[in-house]
Every structure is written in structure tokens, then in C-alpha cells.
Amino acid sequence: MEFLSHLFSSGTLSQFLVGLSRTTILFIVSSGLSLILGILRIPNVAHGSLYMVGAFLAYSVIHLFGGGVAAFVAALVIAPLGVAALGFVLERGFFSHLYEREHLMLLLLTFSFALIIGDLVKIVWGTEYRSVTLPVVLQGSAEILGLPLPYYNLVLLLVGPVIAVFLWLVINRTKMGKIARAAAVDREMVSAVGINVGWVFAFTFVLGCFLAGLGGALIAPMTNISLGMDHSLIIEAFLIVIMGGLGNVWGALLGSLVFGLTQSLGILVWPKFGIVFPYLAVVAVLVFRPRGLLSSTW
């Protein structure tokens, strides 16, 4: 029972908010992964690498513009667009030729791109650790019941819902979004009515890559931008997608919430083994709802 008393301490609120802000980046990245998985049926292992490219691009853009709010905002726009452009090249140049092949081929291709992009990053940015500094206005932290909550985490708390609404609008209110959803259910039928499915796929892939890049750009000021940051993320992102329901963007949102909150509240309850809570949540979901929390498009 002593464990439970931690849950109702003064730290709970700040821990909850920190967990929510962490959810934002997890959601942005995993929703991109989920989109590509749901509509294109590609388990994109290179998604983490695109996120890493987003972080490195953000670093370069911020350095190019010399820091400050303008540079940071520019990075948040340019880095995801850069990654989206890379995604466009990958989709048109490689993936579009392989849609008719087995999933294994596509999986292998994404895996090879994960390795290739990793090496490209090494060639372009080198092996040194990179770090970007937040604009002065975002440095420091607010206080909640005596505990710090960095201003940047507050920003993330706002960005998360904005991206969720944006995705909802794209998927539900644009023609492209509607076609993409239809193609996810029955791609033969969609092409039979005369729609060029290829471009729908390209659009989805590019949107997914944009989200990966945005996630990378958003994490850039919080972390050490380095080779290997892709590996730690891609596993979490896949777990979230599996937990939420393969291919379901709202599942990714729910999965990210479960993942982020079980982690931050888990740390509060049992710091020594805080690491296990999100994974326990994944196991619990898979045992009781093997197809994920929300309906899978597969």
C-alpha cells in the first residue's frame, strides 16, 4: 500500500503533465508510422531513421539561422518538409515499384533504408553529438506545487492536440484523406473506380514521413542528437502502434497516452523499476485485446 501513497502525493500532477507532454512526440511519430502501416501496409522500420534525420535537419536549420525563436520555428517547418521530400523520393523511387510484391520484400527494403539512412546521417553530420538550444523565451521551467515543469513541455502539451486536430481534418475532411481511407479498406475497388491509387499512396507516405520529421524536430532541443536515436524510438513507436490497433491513427494516440502516462506515473510509484510499466501495459493490452485497443485496419 505504501506504493499507492506515492500516487497521491504532490508530485502526481506534475508527473501527469510531464507524461502527457511526452505523449506528444510519441503520438506524432507513431501516428505517421500507423498511417503508412494502415494504408500502404508497409511496416516502415526506417521511420525511426526519418525521425533522426528530422532532428539533424532541425539542428542544421537552427544553426543556419543563428538560434532564436524565428530559427526554431523555421526548423519546425523546414525539417519536417525536408524529411517529407526524402520520403517522396523513397516512395516514388523505390516503394512504388514494390507494392505488388510480398510484405517481406517491403519490410526488407525499409530495413535496408534504416541502415542506409543511418550511414548517410553519419556522412553528412559526422559522428559528434549535436545539441540545439531552445530560444531564450522557452528556457527554464514553470513550477507546479514546488516541482519544475519545463516551459518546453508546456509547449508540447499544446502542440499535441493541434497535430491531432490537423490529422483528423486531413483524414476526414480532405478528398485525399477520404480516398486514402477507402484505399486502406479495398485498394482494388478504389483503383477500379478510376482513382490513381499510386498518388494516394505517395501522399500518405509523404505525410507519414512529415510526421516523423516533425517528431525529430520537436525532440531536438530536449535531447542529444546522435546516431542511434532512431533505434530507441522505433521500438517504442511500433509497440504503440500495435497497442493502439495496427494502422489506426487514433489507436496511435491512445497507445501513446497509455505509454507516456504509465511511464511517468510508474516512475512515481516505483522509480527503481519505472522502466517496466509501459511494457507491462503493452503486455496487458495484447493479452486482453490482442488486436489492439481500437479496431485495426488490417
Binding site: S14, V18, L147, P148, I219, T223, S232, I267
Partner: peptide, 18 residues
């Protein structure tokens, strides 16, 4: 204890401070 490669330490830090 956190996993190697952890990117966001804020939840750990707030807990330690508490």
C-alpha cells in the same frame, strides 16, 4: 533506472526532486 538511450528525463527528474 531508465533504459539506455532514454531521450526525456523530465519524469525521472521531477520524481527525484519530490
Amino acid at each position: 533506472w531508465w533504459k539506455e538511450g532514454e531521450t526525456d528525463f523530465t519524469p525521472y527528474i521531477t520524481q527525484i526532486l519530490a
